[in-house]
Amino acid sequence: FKEKSRGVLREWYAHNPYPSPREKRELAEATGLTTTQVSNWFKNRRQRDR
Rank of each mutant, 00 (worst) to 15 (best):
F1T: 09
K2N: 15
K2W: 07
K2L: 11
K2T: 13
K2M: 13
K2E: 12
E3N: 11
E3K: 13
E3A: 05
E3R: 03
K4M: 09
K4W: 09
K4Q: 10
S5G: 09
S5P: 11
S5R: 08
S5W: 08
S5C: 06
S5Q: 13
R6I: 15
R6G: 10
R6C: 12
R6F: 07
R6K: 09
G7D: 15
G7A: 11
G7W: 10
G7L: 15
G7H: 12
V8D: 11
V8C: 05
V8H: 07
V8Y: 11
V8K: 07
L9K: 00
L9H: 00
L9S: 01
R10V: 14
R10F: 03
R10K: 10
E11F: 05
E11T: 09
E11P: 00
E11Y: 03
W12R: 07
Y13A: 05
Y13G: 01
Y13M: 03
A14S: 10
A14C: 04
A14G: 12
A14V: 12
H15M: 11
H15I: 13
H15Q: 11
H15W: 14
P17Q: 13
P17F: 02
P17V: 09
P17C: 05
Y18I: 06
Y18F: 11
Y18K: 09
Y18W: 08
Y18C: 11
P19H: 01
P19Q: 00
P19C: 01
P19T: 01
P19D: 01
P19V: 05
P19E: 02
S20R: 03
S20V: 09
S20Q: 08
S20H: 02
S20I: 00
S20N: 14
S20T: 10
P21C: 10
P21S: 08
P21H: 02
R22D: 13
E23L: 02
E23S: 02
E23R: 03
E23F: 01
K24M: 14
K24T: 10
K24D: 06
K24L: 14
K24C: 14
K24I: 11
K24Y: 13
K24N: 12
R25G: 15
R25S: 15
R25H: 14
R25F: 15
E26F: 02
E26L: 05
E26C: 00
E26Q: 04
E26D: 10
E26W: 06
E26M: 04
L27T: 01
L27Q: 00
L27Y: 10
L27D: 07
A28N: 01
A28E: 03
A28D: 04
E29W: 03
E29K: 04
E29G: 05
E29V: 04
E29H: 02
A30L: 10
A30V: 11
A30H: 08
A30G: 09
A30R: 11
A30N: 13
A30K: 15
T31I: 07
T31E: 07
T31V: 08
T31D: 00
T31W: 05
G32Y: 05
G32F: 03
G32A: 08
G32D: 08
G32E: 13
G32H: 09
L33D: 04
L33V: 06
L33T: 06
L33Q: 04
L33E: 06
T34E: 09
T34I: 04
T34C: 08
T34A: 09
T35D: 09
T35G: 10
T35M: 07
T35C: 13
T35K: 08
T36N: 11
T36Q: 14
T36I: 08
T36L: 06
Q37P: 03
V38D: 07
V38H: 02
V38N: 00
V38T: 03
V38R: 02
S39F: 03
S39D: 14
S39H: 13
S39T: 12
S39R: 11
S39W: 00
S39V: 04
S39M: 04
N40K: 15
N40I: 12
N40E: 11
N40L: 05
N40F: 02
W41V: 03
W41T: 01
W41G: 02
W41P: 01
W41I: 06
W41L: 02
F42D: 01
F42N: 02
F42G: 03
F42S: 02
F42P: 03
F42W: 00
K43W: 03
K43C: 08
K43P: 03
N44L: 08
N44D: 11
N44M: 06
N44V: 05
N44Y: 04
N44I: 05
R45W: 04
R45L: 06
R45N: 07
R45P: 04
R45A: 11
R46D: 13
R46A: 08
R46I: 07
R46Y: 02
R46C: 05
R46K: 06
R46W: 06
Q47G: 12
Q47S: 10
Q47V: 09
Q47W: 15
Q47R: 15
R48N: 13
R48D: 13
R48Y: 13
R48C: 14
R48W: 06
D49T: 05
D49P: 02
D49V: 02
D49H: 04
D49M: 04
D49C: 02
R50K: 15
R50Y: 10
R50Q: 10
R50E: 11
R50S: 07
